[in-house]
Design a protein around this nucleic acid. Structure first.
Lengths: 343, 343
DNA sequence: TTCCGTTTTGGAACCGCTTTCATGTATGTT
DNA sequence: AACATACATGAAAGCGGTTCCAAAACGGAA
């Protein structure tokens, strides 16, 4: 396995110059650069990141911590971030916390501290204060998507606003019997998000002076299957059946639509459904939704974190000022919402 | 930032002993171990993987290369692998090739060669011979899932067999007009898999002496949306409508079911549908499928690769004998397949 | 041509661990 | 008690680069 030394010998340059030529750091004459690159190519040599990391402190490696990789929102965020990071020459190291609870602690205490990460993107993570300070203790840029991390950068949609506007959309169409299917701490450790969305729903209902019964506020996990079961329970109660459902995610909304079909309820004639996410399946189901473009969120997060890295290498003295950025969303109206049928 | 030196001083031990105590390698007395661990805990010290890697050559880091992270099969494989690797104390570095074609080359030529990976798991990658040899040139264990990598370990389901048995299932129920919706090179760079499954279908049909018209062999990409569009085209042709569809993936099968509903075709009374995958949504749709347990495939792949690593550290002399393992699948019969209605 | 400011270059000191080797110590044998 | 054996430990030499520093080469300007 050829090392930089062999490249130096072959090219007739010093190790230092070869390092600069291949690493693209200091100033190197065009001639030397070509010499070094040719020699490297001939030997099939690539700089070892392990050694570079140790010597320079820069790892070219960003960690991303997600609850799981299997939910559409998360995988989209990862996808977006991966594209940007790859482009920038960075590795992406993936940590999934939801495997089981103890893993989460391991990740936070061990893995992230091992100085192999230049920065961390944390997706939808609700951390205790101790955990946050642990994260920040690595003295590397940290950015939270979804869950805000006090003291770190964050990129988030305004969940409250979003939920309120989604509900308002239904209200604006003339619906008065509007149910909500959201998340619950029973199903998800990250409880803040579903609670916020629920509040938005409640606020919209309250402002419109519409009734919100317990029976119309259901919860499930954030999956199609979970919402499907919940929606069946909701819609099976024929007496006070809602004419519209605001689901806290598109996957939940799809589950609701599937449940509605089971009961022979036509969407949107007999039941309007609105979701949140911009799920790729939304189109097939004609789902009205607030698109929160997770892929773009991931890409933007990656860009922000890379900017941080550049900045911190420039003036390390500047105090770290956390930035909270709000990511815009967009209402996409499709066929799943309409004016309620007259009774 | 405390280093191992500070820990050594605080504990009164030598750097060497602290390294052994914390790294768990050489022999250390229980007393020294405790001393070292206590000191490390007090200083909030964790071994730097970057430095360890350089010194030991072991990175505790496995690369996984996937076409994308957004398709259920891939994310499930990743999920399974991540769980096992995390447990074993390994990092997982993610590479997605499908962002664009040039990235794929970059990954293969640059990223993977940077000696930060102990091994590589390649998922559904169809590589040229040059690319394979490039991969093997890093002299690290490589394991392919889905796409076989000549010269490397592989873990795969028998796609031909699987497709044949899926088709046979429909034939066994009495269907004679069986269509197939599969992939195509037009939609996917990894063409081998869809082609193999198509062959399995054709073989089953041939053996049963059933007709297979061009019109009944459609292709789309491997998504719900894609298959939905394709299935609409297939089913819209009322004249020679098939009574059953074998879809090359569950996502495609779901798209087919959705399309059938659009035409008012009841599943399975008027159309039987079978897929391949074991998708989590299969249950909601009552989908009959061959479960290939991708999550378990990922986990098993990780275990196999870890075993390779252990083995190669034991007797580095032993020649690398690639192992091709077949992963078993399981037919899950649900409500989407039935005896065809008498006409 | 001489002088000065830039750009290039090479030497060498690290970066923070692991591991070999030699030495010292505890354990077991006869 | 004497000796072989196994275990525990510290010193020091790397691992393969990066980067500081000082010296050398270069390119005008005076």
């Amino acid at each position: 396995m050829a090392g930089i030394k062999e490249v130096a010998e072959l090219s007739g340059l010093s190790i230092a110059t070869v390092s600069r030529a291949l690493g693209g750091k200091g100033s190197v004459s065009a001639k030397s650069r070509k010499l070094a690159q040719d020699a490297a190519a001939e030997l099939g040599f690539v700089l070892s990141y392990a050694a570079s990391s140790l010597a320079s402190g820069r790892n070219h490696n960003i960690g991303i911590v997600v609850p799981g990789v299997n939910r559409w929102f998360y995988s989209s965020v990862i996808d977006g971030a991966a594209a940007v990071l790859l482009e920038a020459g960075y590795d992406l190291t993936l940590y999934t916390t939801s495997q089981n609870e103890s893993h989460r602690a391991t990740i936070l205490t061990d893995f992230l501290l091992r100085k192999r990460l230049d920065a961390v993107i944390a997706v939808s993570l609700e951390l205790t204060e101790a955990e946050v300070s642990q994260l920040l203790a690595i003295h590397r840029p940290v950015l939270g998507i979804g869950g805000p991390l006090p003291g770190a950068d964050s990129l988030r949609v305004n969940d409250f606003e979003l939920a309120k506007r989604a509900t308002d959309h239904l209200i604006g169409l003339g619906h008065t019997r509007i149910a909500h299917i959201g998340g619950d701490h029973e199903y998800d450790s990250d409880f803040k998000l579903p609670r916020t969305r629920r509040s938005g729903y409640q606020m919209a209902m309250e402002q419109a002076q519409l009734p919100t019964s317990e029976a119309w506020q259901r919860s499930s996990d954030f999956t199609v299957q979970g919402a499907y079961v919940t929606a069946r329970a909701l819609l099976g109660d024929g007496l006070m059946r809602p004419t519209a459902v605001f689901a806290a995610s598109d996957e939940m909304a799809i589950g609701t639509i599937l449940a509605a079909r089971d009961f022979g309820l036509r969407v949107p004639e007999e039941l309007s459904v609105i979701g949140i996410d911009g799920h790729e399946l939304g189109e097939v189901f004609g789902l009205t939704t607030f698109d929160q473009k997770p892929r773009e969120q991931g890409a933007l997060a990656a860009r922000r974190i890379l900017a941080r890295l550049e900045q911190s290498s420039e003036d390390a003295a500047v105090a770290y000022q956390p930035v909270a950025e709000e990511f815009p969303t967009e209402l996409v109206v499709r066929r799943s919402t309409a004016v309620p049928a007259v009774e």
